[in-house]
Nucleic acid binder design. Structure first.
Lengths: 341, 341
DNA sequence: TTGTATGCGTTATCAC
DNA sequence: GTGATAACGCATACAA
């Protein structure tokens, strides 16, 4: 690789010292106007750019942030990432992404790789396996090393750090209440296995709403699907057996799939059965009928997470001050055509 | 930030020199077995990890690759990214992502930021604006600097470098031929503005297939939609006016939207009108009916692009050798329920 | 006003 | 066997 122009090159070419060049390039008053002009002109002409790596080593700041997400295909994580990327770029930070693919080991390895100087801080959502195992040693080490960490969405009480979450419980409550207010009595829940904190929260919100409105809480109304398995059988059986008039789904994929299965059984949506999903993605907008959803505002969550992290990184006190905050982004209900008026 | 353990720390602690520590840690024969053991034990105990940034500076290799994509929400780019990330990680590389958001300026700025030492090479797809302006100076500079570059999907003849593409023209031809073989006569095309090379290629494939089978090529069969605009009006008018019995769409979003509009007009799919889209994403799988698509194998494209780049980076000749290749990934037709038997 | 010396963390060369 | 030294590219305290 042809090497880039360095201060040394310029110094040699112009027959001055390296430090003179360095100072001249930042327009230091120390250097004579004449020399400054000369150096700057030369640097400009040959398109000098300081080497990021050298700066990182010197300043002990990489201006990169590590993002670790379980999955890049789910629309929600994509939007959060997009929020992070936009905000970080504006403030002069690059984003290094690692996808844990829901695997504990990959999460650990990824973080170890990045933690050795490659990044200034982390933004992450826990992998499913990590939540299942409840194993957080790697995160405790990150924190102990003094590397700022912001957890979003998939979080845990077991790690003390900044966090950004939705009001998942409240949002689920709101969605179910909306269905109850529309007169629905047999409201189902399609969720993932319970170890994901977000699913747990949403499930609690669902129960709470039923209880508060005098509706029975029944196990057969709840369908628990493996998180990644592309399955139709369980869903079809559930829709067939449960005799529901409304369903809340913890993501848009489950919702759209169930809607189709319901339609195949001749049910009209929202007349016979109403649907509300989580995540305001393309699927929801383009499904037929268009799906009413709880919008999680992923982009905003990403921006907030990035702001919290960068603020901490750039805090003149140093990122050592131990005030950790949890910001809650309020989800909102977007009504489309899968809920009755 | 609490600083990480360094060679210097270990040396001081164990009362040996830094270079002894360095050598001992890589099990050099130069160092006595005893010292080696001692140093390794200490390093292990205190969890020593070499600083990546220092290594990068020394080796002039960051083991990071820069990925610049126009957009992170389209399923296709997401899957390519996923392919890149997986493959790169396996070979010990990190991935720094920048999203150009289809903007020429963001593309240029992003690349300039990364080109100054942060990455060893680039993988990218051109932004729409770049393709519109046909302005490639920034890429020529990257290449001139000797930074390896792999272009995928959205490419250009104007830049000489490695490339990974689909056989877009052939794939479109194949899709249209499939519709013709099923007896369809009035086959429409829903595409983007023509400046995107992929759309152009697909359009040509469409025309070619019509011509080869004696069907008239008519302008009113082609709907050209703005790339990002979330519109329904033009599409609805097109579906209403064109009296089609089949439609090829250059992405799954256009296809699913048109399917819905057709259904709203009372048309049956695929009986009255068949659909084929590009991109095998969730939308296609979950639409009703499930959409038949041209699968682009984005994950594979990403892995190939990453392999080409890393092979070049690790070529002992140095990445200077001027043999550039273009690999073509063959798209395949996945038949679901929007095409007749 | 300019230049020298030092350090960021690591490795490699060479001297002891 | 071990250690001093230089180098990667840059910034800066301090000397001239």
């Amino acid at each position: 690789m042809k090497r880039n122009l360095t201060l040394k090159d310029i110094a040699r070419e112009l027959d001055v010292s390296i430090s003179t060049v360095s100072k001249a390039l930042k327009d230091s008053e120390e250097i004579s106007a004449e020399t400054r002009k000369k150096v700057q002109a030369f640097a400009n002409l040959y398109n000098y750019r300081p080497n990021n790596i050298a700066l990182s080593l010197k300043n002990r700041r990489t201006h990169s942030i590590g993002v670790v997400i379980p999955d890049i295909v789910h629309h929600f994580f994509t939007t959060v990432f997009w929020g992070i990327e936009q905000y970080a770029n504006e403030r002069g930070y690059n984003v290094i992404v690692c996808v844990s693919d829901e695997s504990f080991n990959r999460e650990v390895i990824n973080m170890e790789t990045l933690a050795n100087g490659s990044i200034d801080g982390f933004i992450m959502a826990l992998s499913a396996e990590t939540q299942l195992k409840q194993e957080f040693k790697h995160l405790h080490e990150i924190v102990a090393q003094g590397i700022p960490l912001v957890l979003f969405d998939r979080i845990t009480d077991k790690v003390v750090c900044d966090k950004v979450i939705n009001n998942d419980r409240g949002a689920a409550y709101m969605a179910v209440k909306r269905l109850i207010d529309a007169g629905r009595k047999k409201i189902g829940l399609v969720t993932t296995e319970r170890f994901l904190n977000v699913s747990e929260e949403r499930e609690e919100g669902y129960y709470q709403a039923l209880r508060d409105h005098g509706l029975p809480v029944r196990e057969e109304l709840v369908l628990r699907l493996p998180y990644r398995y592309d399955e139709e059988t369980l869903s079809a059986a559930y829709i067939a057996a449960a005799d529901l008039d409304a369903v809340l789904c913890v993501n848009e994929i489950f919702a759209v799939r169930c809607m189709r299965l319901a339609q195949e059984r001749g049910l009209r949506i929202p007349g016979d059965i109403a649907f509300i999903g989580f995540t305001d993605g393309l699927l929801s907008r383009l499904s037929n009928p268009a799906l009413s959803v709880v919008a999680q505002h992923g982009e905003q969550m990403g921006a907030i997470a990035a702001r919290m992290l960068i603020d901490k990184l750039e805090d003149p006190q140093g990122p050592g001050t131990d005030d950790y905050r949890t910001e809650v982004v309020r989800a909102s209900l977007i009504e489309r055509d899968s809920t009755p008026n």
